[in-house]
Computed example of a mutant assay.
Amino acid sequence: MLKKLSQFALALIGLTVLFSSCKKDYESIQSVDTKKIQDYITANNLTVIPDSAATGYFYQIKTAGTGTANFKLTDSVLYQLTVKGLENGTVYWETPSTANLGTYVGYTNGLISTDATIASISVPAIRDVMLKLKPGGSARILLPSYLAYGKNGSGGVPSNENIDLLVSTFPEKVQQTLDDRLINDFIKKNSLTMTKDPSRVYYSISTPGTGVGGAITMSSTLVINYTGRYLDGTVFQTNVAGTFTSTLASLVKGWGAVIPGKITAGGKMRILIPSDLGYGSTLSNGIPGNSVLDFDIEIVSVAN
């Protein structure tokens, strides 16, 4: 009996050693991610700081921003994000250069994707690092996969992908102020002569029109040729075939703010519309939130 027990005990010890050995060889995703990020930091000679709560991310303040005080949780912030793979440099999604994400700093703890195939996820690191910036500041965050899209990935983001995240804030805290600055920068860059309407829409008239059909009102039925662009020149809508019919009441507010009383049938004008008089602060009809819009407009005919 003792002999059998000894053999059993030896077998048990052997299994324990075997399982212990397997367990020792297994690495958690936390340790795998940490090693990859630390190797990347060393290989690229980066100066980064581990987060004080030791959750696993590293960050670098690229531009401190302007002013005397850092952002507070209750401050409004206008910002852009770029999300790319840490090792491969693949950009998985980014805020369009002609738009931005706007909210309170306290609500920036989410990675809100502009790509419908990629999930929006909770990333408190964005808020934590933003609190170390002043308006206009920017930071880089090296985010381990377990704090990002995890083992399942999302859309084009692969499983267990460590993320290199760039956060850039604008100096302005109010969208109307930012829009006006962007419009004026655009006008100056392109040597344009434009008038600012009290509505905050900028316009220039190349042809006032013939007046056939009468004065344009919000309820006039108009046949319109137009081309809509972002400030980077990208065309997002166009119809120049004389087939688009609408009333101004059915279009974005910026059109109705400047067309009546300024041009008539046959008239042509160019208008630069602040985002709140365009498609607003959220994605709408494929237009990213907080986008300033540039339209060339021709009124083909007017019916009252």
Rank of each mutant, 00 (worst) to 15 (best):
F244T: 01
S275Y: 04
Q237D: 07
L231Q: 04
V258D: 08
Y226T: 04
G280R: 04
L231W: 00
I263Y: 06
A257M: 13
I263G: 01
G214M: 10
T282N: 05
L231A: 03
W255C: 00
V212C: 05
I216A: 01
L272A: 02
T282S: 04
L283S: 04
F236A: 01
L277S: 02
I224D: 00
D232V: 10
R270M: 11
T245H: 14
T221I: 15
V212A: 04
I263D: 07
L272W: 09
I271Y: 06
G213F: 06
G261T: 13
G254E: 03
T227K: 10
I216M: 04
T282K: 04
I224F: 09
G214L: 10
I216K: 01
A241V: 14
A265N: 08
I224S: 00
V223N: 04
W255M: 05
G233V: 11
I216Q: 00
A241N: 12
N239C: 03
Y226L: 09
L277A: 01
T243M: 05
V212Y: 13
A215I: 11
L222H: 05
I271S: 02
T238G: 03
G267T: 11
G242T: 15
V235M: 00
S246T: 13
G228L: 15
G214S: 10
Q237R: 07
G280Q: 07
G228A: 11
M218F: 10
V235R: 01
A265V: 09
V258A: 06
T245Q: 14
T217L: 13
P260R: 07
G233Y: 00
T282F: 14
I216H: 03
Y279H: 02
W255T: 00
G254K: 09
S250E: 12
F244A: 01
A249I: 12
L283Q: 00
T234R: 03
T217Y: 09
I263F: 07
L231M: 10
V252T: 10
G266R: 09
A249S: 15
S281E: 08
G266A: 05
T221Q: 15
V212N: 09
V212K: 15
V240Y: 08
A241I: 14
I273N: 03
I224T: 05
K253C: 01
K268N: 11
D276N: 12
F236H: 08
A249E: 13
K268G: 05
V252Y: 06
P260V: 11
A241L: 15
R270S: 12
G267P: 07
S284Y: 14
D276M: 05
G266K: 11
G254N: 02
G228W: 15
A257I: 11
Y226V: 08
T243A: 02
L277P: 02
A257H: 08
Y279E: 00
S246Q: 14
P260H: 04
N285V: 14
Y226F: 12
G233D: 06
M269N: 03
T227I: 13
S219N: 11
T238Q: 06
A241F: 14
L272Y: 06
T282M: 13
S275T: 09
I273G: 03
N285R: 13
G214W: 07
G278A: 10
L277V: 05
L283H: 02
I273D: 01
T247L: 04
I271T: 02
S250C: 08
G233K: 10
T282W: 15
K253A: 01
V240H: 07
Y279L: 11
F236V: 13
L272V: 08
R229A: 13
T234A: 01
S284R: 11
L277R: 10
